[in-house]
């Protein structure tokens, strides 16, 4: 009950935010919302299912270009283009399933890195479709005759999609699917002995993760209004990874906090000329050292200390990945 009230208050604040915030802040919030969705996708794959990926910018790019092209070239309505981008990107997730079934740990991470790099290489070369290095302008989103042409409208659009994606993620995590992910992550053999198919659930994890990131990409193209291949590089993959790790592995609220924090941090630091990179790096190190379970673990230390240990620590998780 208390939780329900808490969420209600948060929702009201978010819904009323446009009354208090500048247009630019709303734009940053929308962008943060895009990253919340991508981080949720990565967390389902890496935090819950234990499959390390540092190539998610590839999925983000596929989602962004798919939805932009569906609207620009095929004239599809934008509201249809985003779920379609999610589905198509979800299918490309199966590409990574192939190495995931053969490789463990750090080797899978290298394969995902390769995937991200390959997408980043193909995009600018496929000029006929993508407009090459210059990138492409994305048509304005129009919802049933209403042009989503202001930061406020895009903010509400993003907010509603984020809420839907959060609810879906909650359902997945609380179902037998979420338990199967965790089971395979922590005790592969025991999970199989409980009837969980390794292939099937890895496939689900990659599809769902790529689907989420594809939705995020589709939304990204409309929020920003312009996409170019250079944005979807390794740095972006690492950004999404850090949002997940800082927020809290295997935690949905953590994904939200991590994505918000790293989306706003550069703006908070814009006053410190020349020192930005240093402070940014130092902030990350401090978070990892003092909040080993991520932001959400930090919050939980007071609210639910007994449940704290259920979150895998980012660093320990990485060590376990490396050891296989």
């Amino acid at each position: 009950m208390r939780r329900l009230i808490l969420w209600g208050v948060a929702l009201c604040l978010l819904a009323l935010a446009p009354l208090f915030l500048r247009s630019y802040t709303l734009y940053i919030l929308s962008l943060a919302g895009v990253y919340v969705i991508a981080t949720l996708g990565l967390n389902l794959l890496t935090g819950y299912a234990g499959q390390l990926s540092i190539g998610h910018a590839g999925f983000l790019a596929i989602g962004a270009y798919t939805s932009a092209l569906l609207v620009a070239r095929l004239g599809l309505p934008f509201w249809l283009s985003i779920p379609l981008a999610g589905l198509l990107t979800g299918l490309t997730g199966f590409i990574l399933l192939v190495p995931a079934l053969r490789l463990t740990a750090i080797y899978l991470a290298i394969a995902t890195l390769g995937f991200g790099a390959a997408v980043a290489e193909i995009l600018p070369r496929w000029t006929a479709l993508t407009g090459g290095y210059q990138g492409m302008k994305v048509p304005k989103a129009v919802l049933f005759g209403l042009a989503l042409d202001s930061d406020v409208k895009l903010y509400y659009l993003t907010l509603s999609i984020v809420i839907v994606m959060l609810l879906l993620a909650r359902n997945i995590v609380d179902s037998k699917m979420g338990r199967a992910f965790i089971a395979l992550r922590d005790q592969e053999r025991a999970a199989q002995a409980c009837g969980i198919s390794l292939t099937r659930y890895k496939a689900y994890a990659f599809f769902i993760s790529a689907f989420y990131t594809g939705i995020a990409g589709g939304l990204y193209s409309f929020v920003v209004g312009y996409i170019s291949p250079g944005e979807f590089d390794l740095a972006k993959s690492l950004l999404i990874f850090m949002m997940m790790a800082l927020g809290g592995m295997a935690s949905l609220p953590g994904s939200v906090l991590g994505a918000l924090f790293l989306s706003f941090l550069p703006h908070w630091l814009s006053g410190f000329r020349g020192l930005q990179q240093f402070i940014y790096g130092a902030a990350l190190v401090l978070v990892v050292i003092f909040m080993p379970y991520g932001f959400w673990g930090f919050v939980r230390r007071w609210t639910m200390p007994d449940k704290l240990e259920r979150l895998p620590r980012p660093l320990r998780a990485v060590v376990e990945f490396v050891r296989g």
Partner: peptide, 23 residues
Amino acid sequence: KPHQVLERGIARTFQNLGLFPYM
């Protein structure tokens, strides 16, 4: 395949415990 063994009706426990520790 390993997961099909359970579907046939064979369940097991492990010498060093096969529980999922964080659940």
